[in-house]
Every structure is written in C-alpha cells, then in structure tokens.
Computed example of a mutant assay.
Amino acid sequence: MASMILPRCATRSLARATSAVRSQASKVATRCIHQTSPITASPIRHRPGAQQCSPRIHAPSAALGRRTMFIQTESTPNPDALKFNPNQRVLPESIPSSFLEYLTPRSTLAPPHPSPLAAKLLSIDGVTSVFFGADYITVTKDSATPWAHVKPEVFAIINEFMLSGHTIVNTVEDTAGESGQEGTELDSLAYDENDSEVVGMIKELLETRIRPAIQEDGGDIEFRGFHDGQVLLKLRGACRTCDSSTVTLKNGIESMLMHYIEEVQGVQQVLDQEEEIAIKEFAKFEEKLRQQKGPDAAPSTIGKGSLDTVE
C-alpha cells in the first residue's frame, strides 16, 4: 500500500484540531465534576460508627424491676391482726391440720413443721404471731406498733418468698416430742367413729356453720371436748387475741349450738395464760366504760357481727 504524504500546512491544521478536541473534552469533564453536589461534612459533625448500624435491643420490662404478685389484704375484728391472701396454696396438703400457728421465733425452727417464711415474718419488729391457713396468712402485731411500719415489710417478705418457689412449711421428725407449733395434730373437727352422737352433731355444726366465718376473719377454731353440757373450744389466729372473742363465743357460737342441740348448756373457751390476762384487762376496760355510760349500757364489741348476731 502506498503511503500518503500530507503537506506541512495540513499537518499543522490536524495538530491544531487535535489540541482543540482535547481542550473541549477537558472542559466537559471539568464541567461535569463541578455540576455534582460537593462533598461536605455531616451536620452531626462525626462519622457514623458501628453502633448506629447495629439494631437496638430493648430490655424486657421484667428486667427493669423485680417481679411482683397480687396479694390482697383483709381487715379482721382484731385491729392488731391482718389477713393476707396471696392467691395460692399456703398450707401444704400433706399436713392433717387445717392451720399452723407460730407464736415465738423458736417455734419457727422447731419440729415437726418449721417454717422459713414464718421465721422471717416474726423477725419484723412488732410482729407477735403468724398464722397459716389453707390459702391465707394472718399476721398479728402488738398494739404499740402501727401497721404503717409493719405492713410494707410483710408485703415484701411474702411477695419475695412466694415468687422464689421456696417451701413455705417443712416437715421433720419430732423425735423429742417438742411440738413447737400450734395445730400440728389432726383436725379436731374431723369425723371420728368413736364420737358420740352429740359430739358428732357439735362437730358438724362447728365445721359447716362456725368455721367458715372464723376463717373469713383470719382465724380458726378447735374442739377441745364436751363435758357436763359444756362445749370446750379454742380460738386461733386473729380471734385468739381479739377483744371480742368472748362475745363471739357467747352470743354467736353458744346461741347456735344451744338452739340446735338441746344437750348443750354452754360454751367455754380454753385459754392460755396470756389470753387470760388479756381478757381480764378487757373486762376492766369494759367495766370502766360501763361506769362512764351508766349501768344500763350494753357491752361494746369491735367484731364484724357475723357471729355475734347468730340466733
């Protein structure tokens, strides 16, 4: 192929044209660069880190505070006793009695039924006794300590203990016959084939008509025997130290038993030494009130009236 020879003037024109094309391309490229948005600093003025890219993990609400359970409280005829209902079983079904009562710190450790929960409750300043029913707890305090100081601690201990799943009442062998708690024997109102007809009728009335009202008031009742027309009973829980317990026995239980069973001539309460002292002090107080109001004034009572008006 023959080579083509360009004249010198054509070569110069081609060089100038090539230079013009390169210059135009450079201007277009420069124009394109300037047309894009300039890269500036973020308004936050810091570079995004790895934490902004990672998803947030929200802690569950239970982790923000301790778990709690709904515990109801009920007042009783005894102003120094409160009934706490944790809405779950309190007394183990394996215990034959319908209640357990702890009157001293030692009784919470002694066989046959020591209780860690009762031990913690009795360690609260002012608490004098702890009573376990089937599904409720009655706490009794001394009259000098206000409930405002006792009630929050009782709530906290019961709540923590119930949620932890610990055993409320343990059962150990009582080799020494110590019997540190009250109510460790068989249920006194349970059916016994050796009972007479009159005793069976007394137990049936106490079980079906009297005990539900006593338990509603945070206590229980024991049958201690029937001798010479007199029914021997023992009140427990909130009713044990209640000032109106005598009125309840006489105006309520005695009236009912005498109405349905002609062999019953009266009801007597079996008392401990401290209970005898409390009743004597209450009798003195009633006598002072009667003298101030006049000889015809009726005796006063702080009971609910559920048993005091039974006919």
Rank of each mutant, 00 (worst) to 15 (best):
C239P: 02
F282R: 15
E274Y: 10
V264Q: 01
Q268R: 14
R236Q: 06
I261Y: 02
L249T: 00
E281P: 03
E276Y: 06
L235T: 00
F282I: 04
V247G: 10
D272T: 14
D228G: 08
K234Q: 07
E286T: 09
G266P: 05
M256P: 02
E281N: 13
Q265T: 14
Q268P: 09
Q273R: 14
D272N: 15
L257A: 06
A278L: 10
F226T: 07
D243K: 07
D243H: 13
G252D: 01
R240A: 04
M256T: 05
I279R: 15
E276D: 10
K280M: 07
M258Q: 11
S244V: 04
F226M: 05
T246A: 15
L249C: 08
L233I: 03
M258H: 01
A238G: 02
L232R: 05
V267G: 05
C242Y: 02
T241A: 13
V231Y: 01
C242T: 10
Q269R: 10
V247I: 10
D243Y: 10
G229V: 13
K234N: 08
Q269Y: 08
V267C: 14
I277S: 09
D272Q: 15
F226Y: 04
L232C: 09
G237L: 02
N251Y: 05
R240P: 01
V267I: 12
E263G: 08
I253F: 00
K234L: 06
D228Q: 06
H227A: 12
E262C: 09
T248K: 06
S244M: 02
Y260I: 05
I261K: 02
S255T: 09
V267M: 06
